[in-house]
């Protein structure tokens, strides 16, 4: 046994090269799931092993890293991944979307528009959008190859038949560059329009499923829908009760066991920035707001 040798950003260079090759291929074929030899990472599957591997292989010493989990910079997942890279790569970390060059995210796209100098890395649990309809991997890969995507609409049809509208609220399927149907990872469908024509490079890593896919900058991404039931992003009909934002995606926070609740921005950096700029909570008529449904 040789002693463990330190390498920048945890993974050895050979592994990083392998992952970079997969990333390059993914960028060359937007939306196509490229298989890669996913490594075991010092964290459990489901905690972002795919995203961490992608981040590790694109990170340079000059990069500034931001990690968000459901939009928040201060949850366990985000904090521990940030610490991981501070320790293994010594890179600077930040919570500011503007400052970051690499943003690893779980289930959100930041509210602040991204720029060409940034890379957004998604953690993906199940990369295959057709998985729940067609369990056979051989069959789904053939369907992608031949772009037989009728089945995806069967899912949306079922939604409308059952609920009267498309009730899929997250992991809403999209078509990338008019070719591949892709699962955008479990982001709320509120974020779907931000996928399209985004100046930043978007990379998706699924560790357990061993797949990497990508949306290159300025690529057209369309959410699937029906002519008579068009795609509609969903947002709670409220304002953030900390910063008053009326355009951000909101989390519903239950504040006691009597049905009180409040809505706050899910993107903590966006909310904090706004508050620092002097925005405040909207005037409320009473503290005990009745529970709404």
């Amino acid at each position: 046994m040789s002693a463990p040798v330190y390498n920048f950003a945890y993974l050895d260079e050979q592994t990083k090269r392998m992952i970079r090759r997969a990333i390059l291929k993914a960028i060359a074929i937007p939306g196509y799931q490229v298989p890669f030899a996913s490594r075991e990472m010092p964290m459990p599957y489901g905690w972002g092993t795919g995203g961490v591997q992608v981040t590790a292989s694109i990170l340079g010493p000059e990069d500034v890293l931001k990690v968000i989990d459901q939009g928040s910079d201060d949850t366990t997942n985000a904090v521990s991944i940030r610490k991981f890279f501070t320790k293994t790569a010594g890179v600077r970390t930040t919570t500011s979307t503007l400052e970051a060059t690499v943003i690893q995210t779980r289930h959100r796209i930041p509210e602040t528009p991204l720029s060409e100098t940034q890379v957004l890395v998604y953690q993906v649990p199940i990369p295959e959008p057709l998985r729940f309809l067609e369990p056979r991997e051989t069959e789904t890969r053939r369907m992608h190859a031949l772009s037989e995507y009728g089945l995806m609409h069967v899912k949306l049809y079922e939604d409308i038949a059952r609920h009267g509208h498309i009730a899929t609220t997250y992991a809403y399927p999209v078509k990338v560059d008019e070719r591949y149907v892709m699962d955008p990872s479990p982001i709320p469908k509120f974020d779907n329009p931000k996928l399209s024509d985004c100046p930043a490079l978007q990379l998706f890593g699924a560790g357990r499923e061993k797949r990497i896919y990508a949306i290159p900058p300025y690529t057209r991404v369309v959410s699937l829908d029906f002519e008579d039931h068009p795609f509609q992003p969903y947002r709670h009909d409220a304002q953030c009760e900390l910063c008053g934002a009326a355009d951000s995606y909101l989390d519903e926070v239950i504040t006691d066991d009597r049905g009180s609740r409040m809505f706050v921005c899910s993107d903590t950096d966006y909310c904090e920035t706004r508050r620092a700029m002097g925005y405040a909570a909207p005037a409320r008529n009473s503290d005990a707001e009745p529970a709404r449904d």
């Binding site: 009728g150 089945l151 609409h153 069967v154 049809y157 029906f226 002519e227 008579d228 039931h229």
Partner: peptide
């Protein structure tokens, strides 16, 4: 409806 959607029908009604 699956076959119809597979050949490109995109109108729920």
């Amino acid at each position: 409806g699956e076959r119809l959607m597979a050949v490109g029908w995109r109108n729920y009604g």
